[in-house]
Design a binder for these strands. Structure first.
Length: 134
RNA sequence: CGGUAAAAACAGCUUGUCGCUUCCCGCUUGCGGGAUGAGGAAAGUCCGGGCAACACAGGGUGCCGUACUACCUAACGGGUAGGAAAUCCAAUAUAAUGUUGGGUUUACAGCUAGUGCCACAGAAAACAAACCGCCCCAAGCAAUUGGGGUAAGGGUGAAAAGGCGGUGUAAGAGACCACCGUUCUGUUAGCAAUAACAGAAGCAUGGUAAACCUUACGGGUUGCAAGGCCAAAUAGGUUACGAGGUGUAACUUCGGUUGCACAAAACACUACCCGUGUUUUCGUAAUGGGUAGGCUGCUAGAUUCCGUUUGCGAAAACGGAGCCAGAUAAAUGACAGGUAUACCCUGCAAGGGGUGAAACAGAACCCGGCUUAUCGUUUUUACACUUUA
RNA sequence: GGUCUCGUAGUUCAAUGGAUAGAAUAGAUGUUUCCUAAACAUUUGAUACAGGUUCGAUUCCUGUCGAGACUA
């Protein structure tokens, strides 16, 4: 049975890690309307093997209410699907930090987003299993 | 019945599954159980206050803000009531201005304290002046020319020196008169703004203070990223105590000692001047800044709801009941179903079927206002119109 | 979160409250050239939005909207 919790230790809050992610992170997975940037880190003491950051651009959505709603939707999808990612990471003994960026230009329903999310996680897991060529 | 305007209230409810924030309880210490969780504007940050730190001898000048009156309030540039003005509608009267009733709006102190500005046009844009005119006198056959009076009419302009009618006159003119307007004085009413009445002044008192300014009143500065605490390492820092700078003269054991005179700079009150206070350099002792992180400030309050009383009202007093967010890369959600309203289709109607929250929008120290955004629903008041009796 | 500043042609800047809102550059058209560039001539194009004060507003006042700066 998978756990569907989403605690604070699963969220990316450290300023140092965020700066590192956006300066050095070069592993990108794109599946419309999402774009995922991730970076491998060496933090073996973490309880969970990943920390996540969700962003929605202010340029595309001026209203703060709409931005918050999209972020909550994404967080819900991540919460329900993260066990797929955790299995792979725990098998390989890796820790990563990742940023999920919403690059769509308009609001979307739950049903419209669902196939995109499924594909996104498949792509992510594929890229995780292929070794870093750089 | 519908329409317009203003004001007020609401702006979903509910079931299940999985999550998030804070608090409480339990233990197997990261899980289980329970409670709790966003608005009328949380927004803009436009005003005002609480709270906090620093500063709190004083005087003058300056700066900023406000501006009919009374009241409400912790306070306000907010609100309530009243007055005045402007404008619209209706009725009514007139030569014209008006009067009465109702609606809406008003940054409504003072250009009669002083200074400035009023383009173009126009004779003249403010201690007056005269282009076309009007009238008188003189010259001339006449056209016209010269001198004087005048400001009614024309013309210019956004604005032309009270309005209209009469008397008067060579023509005219508040030169004089009636009515209206304006200003001043007095009486009465009113807490007051002001109003009514009476009298006086012929009125050179054009407009502009959202031009400088004057008058009256108010304003210490900075904002919770304020401020306080914790903690490993190390120096410029901070605090306390002690000595003290420059010039000159005398004495001298040439190390200094004594007398006299004088500061300068920086900082604070403070934007400037006066004034006041502190510091400057050295030694000793104590303490330990900032950065990154955590804790605190942090939510019980000019509090919410109900009732009674007082007041035209804003509001106040009293009594009862209640506790109601506290995040920090920032919780308050997602999915599935039901449903009042609303919307769409159909129907003469009753009804039937479908969609099924969809407006503006998300607390960040806390309150009182203002402003702006807003799908709709309900209530009240006012106005005009239509229909029926 | 808090404190401030600024909005004028496509762009960079002007304009004391006075009317056709100016200059450079960019764009368009023409002349010149075998063609282009340069040069010359002509022309298009703007006061962020909404109210108010004033005879008259880019300018003064108020409110919105947008952009930017500072602050740990």
């Amino acid at each position: 049975m998978h756990t569907y919790t989403f605690k604070k230790s699963e969220r990316l809050c450290s300023t140092i890690h965020i700066n590192k992610l956006f300066q050095k992170g070069n592993r990108v997975v794109t599946q419309f309307p999402f774009r995922v940037l991730w970076l491998e880190v060496n933090e073996p003491l973490w309880v969970y093997p990943a920390q996540v950051l969700i962003t929605v651009s202010k340029r595309n959505f001026k209203s703060g209410v709409v931005r918050n709603r999209i972020k909550r939707q994404i967080r819900e999808f991540y919460r329900l699907n993260k066990h797929l990612l955790y299995q792979v990471l725990q098998n390989r003994n890796q820790q990563i930090i990742l940023a999920i960026n919403y690059i769509g230009k308009s609001k979307m329903n739950h049903e419209e987003l669902k196939p995109a999310v499924d594909k996104l996680f498949q792509k992510c897991i594929q890229q995780l299993q292929t070794p870093d060529k750089l």
